[in-house]
Design a protein around this nucleic acid. Structure first.
Length: 490
RNA sequence: GGUCGCGUGGCCGAGGGGCUUAGGCACCGGUCUGCAAAACCGGUUACGGCGGUUCGAAUCCGCCCGCGACCUCCA
C-alpha cells in the first residue's frame, strides 16, 4: 500500500498510521441501527462516514470484511428491570409481531441508505440470529469469573474486572467517578454495583421477546451482541470498530470489557467515532424529538424544511464537514451544499468537452497528491473538497481557454474525478427517469431552436419571451456564440 | 455536580505558533454578452473575552463567559 493512511484512534486519542493486522485483510465492524423507527439524519452520518472509510480502504487495495449489525433485540428503553425492549414496545403500539417491526424498518433503512449511495456491508448480522453466540459469550465470561448470576440475570462484574484491567480506558472514565455518578435505578438492587451491566436478562412474564437459556427464559443485554457478532465474523482481534460518539460510553466501553474478560486480550486495534449532527446546536435524536427522517428530507415534507433535498445532497453535506466535528443542520447549509455539488457535476460535464492543447500549465499530479494528503489525514474530506474545487476552477478555466491542458492532463483529470469523487467519496449524479428526461430534453431543445431562429432575425422580444417562460419553469438558458446551453435548476 | 470537547468572517466549514487570501454558499465589482445566466478574475466581512509565554498567537498556557456531548435509551 503506497499511501500512508492515518486515522484517529479514540483509544489513544491521537492520529495513528493505519496498519492492518493481517494485510491485505481488514476487519471493520460498525454499530448499525436499532430498527424500531425510520432512519433520521443522525443515522446518515455513521452510515456515510464508514462507507467512506470502507471505500477508501478498498481503494488502497485492502480486502475488507465490513460487518454492520442490525440491533433487533436487547436494546431497552432503560436499564431497570421493567425496562421495555424498544422493538417490543413499538410492536405493541403497532399491534404487530416484533419481527414484523424489525423487517419493516430494516428494509426501510436499506432503501434509505442505498439512495445515499452507501454500500452494503459484507455481513449484516442480526442480534436475534446470534442468541446462542451471545449466551456462549456470557457463559465464558461467567466461567472466567467476571460476571455473576442473580435470579436468572447475568451481570458483568465491573469492579472485579477493573482489578486486572482498565474499565474506562476508552471513554476516559474511572470507576470511582462512576460510583459517584451512576444513578441508582429502581429494580436494580440485585446488582453488586449500579454500573454493572447485564449480559443476559431474565424475561418477565409480559416480555414477549424471549429465548431459553441455562439461566431460564430471557434475552441478551444490549452490549453483548456486538462483542459476540464481531468475534464470530472478524475474530478475537480485528482492525477497526466504528460508531457514533454517543456509543462511546457505555456501549463500547462494555464491549471492550466483555471481549477482554472472555479472551484475555483486547479485540479492537482502532476505535473510530463520528460526531453528532445537531439542529440548532442540539443533538438530533429521538429522545429530544427534534429529528427529521431521511425520507422527509427527500420529500421535503417536514415543517423545518424549506424544500426537498436529494439523498446525494445529504451525503455531500455530511462529507463537507470532518467526521469528528459536530455538524449543524440548517436549510441554508443544505442549500449551499446542493449548489456546490451542482457546480462539481457541471465541471465534470465540461471536462468531457474540453479541447486539449499541446502545451500545459496545469499540474494534475500535484492535485492528485493533495487529494491523497487530505484523505490520508484521518479522512479529511473538507480539505479534500477544497482541493477538488481547485480542480473545478482549473477545468472551467481550460474551457474559457485561459488555461491550457494537454490530452494527457485531461485524461488525468477525468481519472481523478472517477477515483475521488465517484469511487471514494461516492458522490454520483442522480439520474431522472430516463424516458421522462428524454422527452423533456426534446421539448426544451425544440423551444430553444425556435428561440435561436428568432434571435437570428433580431426578434429579441420573442426570444426573451421563450427564455422567460423557460426560466419560470426552472430551466436556465445560457447563450453561447452560435447556439445555446441549458440546464434544469431547482 | 463529574468527564471530555467546542467557540473562526452574513451562513456552513477546514486549519492550528510567523507564511493557508483553505473551500462551499451569499453579497459587491470587472471581463464576456443584444440583455441575462454561467464561467473566469478581483473584492468585502474572522479567529468569544481578559491576561500570560514568545521576537511573533486565531494557533500554546491560565482564568472568565457562552455552548455541546457523555455520565440514563440515542448514530
Amino acid at each position: 500500500m503506497a499511501q500512508e493512511f492515518y486515522i484517529y484512534n479514540t483509544l489513544t486519542r491521537q492520529k495513528e498510521k493505519f496498519r492492518a493486522l493481517n494485510p491485505p485483510h481488514v476487519g471493520l465492524y460498525v454499530c448499525g441501527p436499532t430498527v424500531y423507527g425510520e432512519a433520521h439524519l443522525g443515522h446518515a452520518r455513521p452510515a456515510v462516514t464508514f462507507d467512506l472509510l470502507y471505500r477508501y480502504l478498498k481503494h488502497l487495495g485492502y480486502k475488507v470484511r465490513y460487518v454492520r449489525n442490525i440491533t433487533d433485540v436487547g436494546h431497552l428503553e432503560n436499564d431497570a428491570d421493567d425496562g421495555e425492549d424498544k422493538i417490543a414496545k413499538k410492536a405493541k403500539v403497532e399491534k404487530l409481531e416484533p419481527m414484523e417491526i424489525v423487517e419493516y424498518y430494516t428494509r426501510s433503512y436499506h432503501h434509505t441508505v442505498d439512495r445515499m449511495n452507501v454500500l452494503r456491508p459484507n455481513i449484516e448480522p442480526r442480534a436475534t440470529g446470534h442468541i446462542i453466540e451471545q449466551q456462549q459469550l456470557a457463559k465464558k465470561i461467567l466461567e472466567k469469573g467476571y460476571a455473576y448470576e442473580k435470579n436468572g440475570n447475568i451481570y458483568f462484574d465491573v469492579e472485579r474486572y477493573n482489578k486486572e484491567h482498565n474499565y474506562g480506558k476508552l471513554s476516559g472514565r474511572n470507576i470511582e467517578e462512576l460510583k459517584a455518578n451512576t444513578r441508582n435505578l429502581e429494580g436494580q438492587e440485585e446488582k453488586k454495583n449500579p454500573f454493572d451491566f447485564a449480559l443476559w436478562k431474565k424475561a418477565t412474564p409480559k416480555h414477549i421477546m424471549r429465548w431459553p437459556s441455562d439461566w431460564g427464559e430471557g434475552f441478551p443485554g444490549w452490549h453483548i451482541e456486538c462483542s459476540a457478532m464481531s468475534t464470530k465474523y472478524l475474530g478475537e482481534k480485528f482492525d477497526i470498530h466504528g460508531g457514533g460518539m454517543d456509543l462511546l460510553f457505555p456501549h463500547h466501553e462494555c464491549e471492550i470489557a466483555q471481549s477482554t474478560a472472555a479472551n484475555g486480550k483486547e479485540s479492537v486495534k482502532y476505535w473510530m467515532h463520528n460526531n453528532m449532527i445537531t439542529i440548532q446546536g442540539q443533538k438530533m435524536g429521538k429522545s429530544l424529538d427534534n429529528f427529521i427522517t431521511l425520507n422527509e428530507f427527500f420529500s421535503g415534507k417536514h415543517k423545518l424544511l424549506e424544500k426537498p433535498f436529494t439523498p446525494m445532497t445529504i451525503r455531500f453535506f455530511i462529507l463537507q464537514a470532518h467526521y469528528r466535528s459536530p455538524l449543524d443542520f440548517s436549510n441554508e447549509a443544505l442549500q449551499a451544499a446542493e449548489k456546490g455539488m451542482e457546480k462539481l457535476f457541471k465541471a465534470e460535464e465540461t471536462l468531457e468537452t474540453l479541447k486539449s492543447s499541446n502545451k500545459s500549465n496545469i499540474d494534475a499530479g500535484d492535485l492528485e497528491q493533495k487529494f491523497y494528503e487530505a484523505i490520508n489525514d484521518d479522512l479529511n474530506t473538507p480539505v479534500l473538497f477544497s482541493h477538488i474545487f481547485d480542480m473545478v476552477r482549473i477545468i472551467n478555466s481550460i474551457k474559457d481557454e485561459k488555461t491550457k491542458a494537454t490530452n494527457e492532463d485531461i485524461k488525468k483529470l477525468k481519472g481523478l474525478y472517477k477515483t475521488f469523487v465517484h469511487d471514494i467519496l461516492g458522490i454520483e449524479k442522480e439520474e431522472k427517469t430516463k424516458e421522462e428526461s428524454r422527452l423533456t430534453e426534446e421539448l426544451i431543445e425544440l423551444l430553444l431552436n425556435l428561440r435561436l431562429e428568432a434571435k437570428k432575425r433580431k426578434d429579441f422580444e420573442t426570444a426573451d419571451k421563450i427564455r422567460n417562460a423557460l426560466t419560470k419553469k426552472g430551466i436556465v438558458v445560457k447563450d453561447t456564440k452560435d447556439g445555446f446551453e441549458w440546464e434544469i435548476k431547482k
